[in-house]
Amino acid sequence: MSATAASRRRRSFAAVLRRYGWSYIFVLPTFSLFVVFTLLPVVQGLVLSLQNARVTGGEFIGLANFETLAADPVFIQAVGNTILYATVVVAAQITLALVVASLIQPLGPRAHVFYRALFYLPLVNSAILVAMVWRWIFNANPYGLANTALGTVGLGPYLWIGSSDQALIAVILSAVLTIPGGGVVLYSAAMGSLPRELYEAADLDGASWFSKWRHITVPLLRPTTLYLVVIYTILAFQLFERVYIMTNGGGPNNATITIVQLIYSTAFQFGRYGLASAMAVVLFGMALVVAVVQFRSLRSDVEY
């Protein structure tokens, strides 16, 4: 019986291969590029994280790099700063994107196009240039834009990026105060495809605008929210250029040091590729755990 079953399975596999085999040929180029430029570097990163690798080579040292990281106060500070930044910035950006998309939703199609373009276009700017502008905004001198603005209402001047107490706040503010164009566009598109009947039913029940938003729009947008939360969290974990430019790569007293900033220094300035790879593995683990938690908590069975 079992021989017959195995033979049937083989025949079935051969039939599938005969029928669909040609399609794998089309996938092969992209798959090869994925293997060479994504999969292999990731595997190599994992291997390097278990070595004391420097440019001249390295030896297998097991988990010693991870033990070093666990005892390194600078790395622990970088992890703390990264988590704080990601938590505040992701929450703020999701909220802001949802609110802005909701505000432009009742407008006409032309206004939609205009506002989506308006909010999205800044994203094509160089991140370095944007960071330089923020550096000027949060300059510690009285002529920094933030200090000038606050000075008109009798506040400040504050040290902002010139102080270890305020530098991370300034970096977080620079992200929070930037309207997330990608999120606005995605929410706006998702809102456009929500079923109108639910709103009409709510209208018949006399629901207010806020009640409809709170009880219909927001729950139905959960799949989009999940996608944005995961993507924004990963992007926030990868924070680098803003810190590098605004605070000269770590700020006063390492106040703004982040994991990616430390990976960069450790690999390319200190030449410790193994240790830097271990940091990258920790970051990968963090992103994976957070994504799984987010998927589990925000997963939605709502269909429309």
């Binding site: 006063p252 007293n253 200190f270």
Partner: peptide, 21 residues
């Protein structure tokens, strides 16, 4: 290992002193 001593430890320590912390 100077750049590591410098950037990772000495500069932050200097900053902490200059800030009065």
């Amino acid at each position: 290992t100077w750049s590591e001593i410098d950037q990772k430890y000495l500069r932050p320590a200097r900053d902490a002193a200059l800030e009065g912390k």
